[in-house]
Structures are given as structure tokens and as C-alpha cells.
């Protein structure tokens, strides 16, 4: 989950906005045990060792995900838990002000954008869509417009609406080049188009686009996404050398990045004890259980390939 849902932007934003998060070691090797947490959760989860569960502060269990829920169904589960327990989903005072301002000032792009981002964080995509389009009605060439386009692209991607992704990208591409560069939307158009290509299993086209994006936008905050997805495309093209290169590149060069663990897990996929949904559900059948030592050893092998490919470039 650490490489999957916990590294996913919309999960991070929703969890930080609406929940209090805690993790502990339930009985495996190493550190991180917590007696108070163990007493709190005792007898309340189907699997007492590996779980991701919601409780109220008094200890009432209110939901649990599937043991290896992926990033999309974890987000859906979090939204459902909140809808089922509205007393824990109340707006804060600051959030109420954001919504009031958006209502009072429909032509204020910043107010509409803030409301859109709040709605998107909470999984209220229809409302968010309305707010983002209101931003674009005010102007399509401001910084707020850039963020509104990004929001529309993300939500189309979450819905796997590749036609919608391309429609928004088309709208962005209609801008004059200077305007698009001013809003720095080119990396977003590249990455979201790549997601559409990956979703359509057009792995060669996706990889070409991503390699170009890596070269063209080396300072983008989406660089780790470019590399991770280039690795995924390479994996499906059965080009493991390039897959290892891209994944290890993130681990070695951007160790503090949100996707570093996802890239590490992908690079070590042959030693992981569970399926990897980013790699089409790849499961290493020959390794029952697994261990941190085995996983680290597998990453070391992947890193050796990375070093070889890097030297050859």
C-alpha cells in the first residue's frame, strides 16, 4: 500500500484533509510495535496482522479495505467511509469560508479555483468540474486557469475518460505557445496524454512521449511520474532493462519523491510477496512470503542494470 495508494496524490490529499493516520508493526520483524494500538485494534479486523481500517477515536471499527487494495479502490473506500459517517466529514471553518467566497464571487477565479480544489480533494468531482470550468470562463490564460486545466485533466484520468483527457489537452494546445509555456502546462499535457496511451495499451507511443518529456522538462515536479510510467511502458514492452533504468533513476536521484517507493517496489517486483497492480497484477509466484532482505537484494540486481544502462547512455 505504501507504493500504491499511500503514494497517490488524491489519497494523500483526502487523508490529510479528513483523517488522522497511524501505522504500526503488528507482529513482523524489526521495529515499530505499539501496545496501545494493538489493544485498540484487537479483535476488530478480519486479518489481525495486515489491514487498513477506519475507527472512531473511541475504538468503534467503521470499515476496512481489502488486504491489498489498489490506489483507486482505496480512494473510493475512503470517500464511502466519509459518506457513511457524515459526522466525521464536516467542513472546517476555513473550508466553509472557501465555499462561501466561491458562492458570493462567481467571477473571482481564485475563489472558484479554491472551491474546486476543495471539492476535488473530497472526491466531489461533479462539483469540482463546475468550479474549474467557472475559472476558465473568467479567463483561460491565468495561473488559476492552469490549475483548473490540471484539475480537469486529473478528474478525467481518474474516470479513465481518455476522450475527456484528450479534449482538455486539445483545449490547452489551442493556446498560443507563449501562453502554454507561461502556465507551464506542457508537462501536464504530456503526462496525462501518456496515461491515456497506457490506458489504451499503446505502450510504444507512451514510452516515446515520456522519454521526450523527460528530456524536455527535467525540472518538472512530474519527472518521477514520467520515469515511473516510462518504466511501466517498458515493462509491458518486455524491455526490463529500460524498466529498471527508469524506476531506479527515481530511487537513486529523487529519493525523497512521492513515487520513490513505488519505483523501488516496481524495480523489486520479482521479490515482492504480493501482486503489483501497476504492472498488470504481476505476482512473483516462486517466492512465498518474502522478506525485506530478499526485496532489498532484488532491488540491488535492478540497480546493477540501471548502472549499466546509465553508463551506456
Amino acid at each position: 500500500m505504501r507504493a500504491g495508494c499511500f503514494a497517490e496524490t488524491r489519497v494523500i490529499r483526502l487523508v490529510n484533509r479528513r483523517f488522522i493516520s497511524f501505522f504500526y508493526n503488528t507482529g513482523g520483524p524489526g521495529q515499530g510495535k505499539d501496545e496501545k494500538a494493538a489493544a485498540f485494534t484487537k479483535g476488530k479486523t478480519k486479518n489481525r496482522f495486515a489491514f487498513y481500517a477506519a475507527f472512531d477515536a473511541a475504538g468503534e471499527p467503521l470499515g476496512v479495505t481489502d488486504i491489498y487494495a489498489n490506489k483507486d479502490n482505496t480512494f473510493d473506500w475512503l470517500v464511502e467511509v466519509l459518506r457513511n459517517n457524515p459526522e466525521f466529514d464536516q467542513y472546517t471553518e476555513a473550508e466553509e469560508k472557501v465555499l462561501a467566497k466561491a458562492k458570493a464571487e462567481p467571477k473571482d477565479a481564485a475563489a472558484q479555483l479554491a472551491a474546486g480544489q476543495l471539492a476535488e480533494d473530497l472526491g466531489k468531482y461533479k462539483e469540482a468540474d463546475g468550479y474549474y470550468r467557472a475559472v476558465l470562463e473568467v479567463s483561460r490564460v491565468t495561473a488559476e486557469a492552469g490549475d483548473a486545466y490540471r484539475g480537469l485533466l486529473r478528474m478525467a484520468r481518474y474516470a479513465r475518460d481518455w476522450k475527456g483527457v484528450r479534449a482538455v489537452c486539445g483545449s490547452v494546445n489551442e493556446m498560443k505557445e507563449g501562453q502554454m509555456n507561461k502556465l507551464n502546462l506542457a508537462p501536464d499535457v504530456a503526462m496525462e496524454t501518456a496515461y491515456a496511451l497506457l490506458g489504451e495499451k499503446k505502450y510504444d507511443a507512451a514510452r516515446k512521449l515520456l522519454v521526450r518529456a523527460i528530456e524536455t522538462h527535467p525540472d518538472s515536479k512530474r519527472l518521477s511520474e514520467f520515469h515511473f510510467s516510462a518504466g511501466v511502458a517498458s515493462f509491458f514492452l518486455k524491455d526490463k532493462e529500460q524498466a529498471y533504468y527508469h524506476w531506479c533513476w527515481v530511487v537513486e536521484n529523487l529519493p525523497d519523491d512521492r513515487l520513490a517507493r513505488r519505483c523501488f517496489t516496481a524495480a523489486a517486483h520479482e521479490a515482492m510477496p504480493y501482486e503489483n497492480p501497476e504492472l498488470g497484477g504481476y505476482a512473483a509466484k516462486h517466492l512465498p512470503g518474502g522478506s525485506i532482505e530478499l526485496i532489498n537484494a532484488q532491488y540491488k540486481k535492478a540497480k546493477a542494470v540501471y548502472e549499466k544502462v546509465k553508463t551506456a547512455k
Partner: peptide, 30 residues
């Protein structure tokens, strides 16, 4: 995240802020 060993403060924060506690139990080791 609230870290292992800090469960009490996580529980207090959930109570004070009227939010749900999300607990990740890890079997694999830390």
C-alpha cells in the same frame, strides 16, 4: 502519519478534530 509509539496522540487528535482514525497494521516488518 503518526509514528509507532505515538498512538495516544493520534487517538487524541482524532477525538479533538472529530475525524476518523485510519490505522495501517503492517505484518511484513518495519
Amino acid at each position: 502519519w503518526h509514528l509507532p509509539g505515538d498512538f495516544e496522540s493520534a487517538q487524541k487528535a482524532a477525538d479533538k478534530e472529530k475525524r476518523l482514525l485510519l490505522v495501517k497494521g503492517i505484518a511484513f516488518g518495519v
